[in-house]
Design a protein around this nucleic acid. Structure first.
Lengths: 123, 123
DNA sequence: CGGCATCCTCGATGATACTG
DNA sequence: CAGTATCATCGAGGATGCCG
């Protein structure tokens, strides 16, 4: 990730027309709907998970992309992160209120898709 | 990504099958949450649109990507396409029932994000 | 265990030009 | 208007290795 971006605040210059490239929300939507973002968010809906638990539950994701995706989501305020200073370290991720807010329609989205594709005569 | 065609059952509270690379729904989810897919679907929610109308409403999209995205969505059964054999040709796109079904949580998703980012003290 | 840094590949994306 | 075809590129993403 390009880094540096902290918690995103409403900037005066930015618009809220998501269809506009210069839109604040578009960045967040891009993260949420990024290749791995959606799966991370959905994974964390039921309960908080450790790094390796996430890695194992999301088939095909690399550690690099998991870390990168998590960082973006944390920066966007969708995911929180706690570090237990044990040995070995223990890092846990979970959804913030905002994250849960976003996770709901996301789950609904893929539920509907799954339901549709499993339905007899579909596709 | 075109591998498996088996439909598996989702276990409540457990990992969903979509987390596996060989899941049918994953392809569709990938299309829906592709860079432009989400905007196309949201654009078409209110009413059907012509090709150039879509191009103009979604800032930053190229004709190639629009055509490509639309083709994928049509194949997935989310979008329908009609051609009026006039001169010049007139092609219209709209949401199928499935598309509307999917568009709803999608709109809800980005509504929540927008709302959150516009909220005072947000971020 | 968690997670950076580095290198490298490949495919998504974009620009351009052409067709019906 | 609504595409399609071709080519160039850019960066997401994967593999590997090192560190606290």
């Amino acid at each position: 990730m390009t880094g540096g971006s902290q918690h995103r605040q409403a900037e005066a210059g930015k618009r809220y027309d998501v269809f506009h490239t210069d839109c604040l929300a578009r960045d967040v939507v891009d993260h949420v709907t990024s290749r791995w973002g959606i799966w991370v968010l959905i994974s964390l809906r039921s309960n908080s998970l450790r790094f390796y638990e996430l890695r194992e539950s999301i088939q095909g994701i690399s550690e690099k992309m998991l870390a990168q995706t998590l960082r973006a989501l944390v920066q966007d305020g969708l995911v929180w992160r706690t570090v237990e200073p044990t040995t070995p370290p223990q890092v846990t991720y979970g959804l913030t209120e905002f994250g849960q807010d976003v996770g709901e329609p996301l789950t609904e989205l893929f539920d509907r898709i799954t339901r549709r594709l499993s339905a007899p005569g579909a596709g």
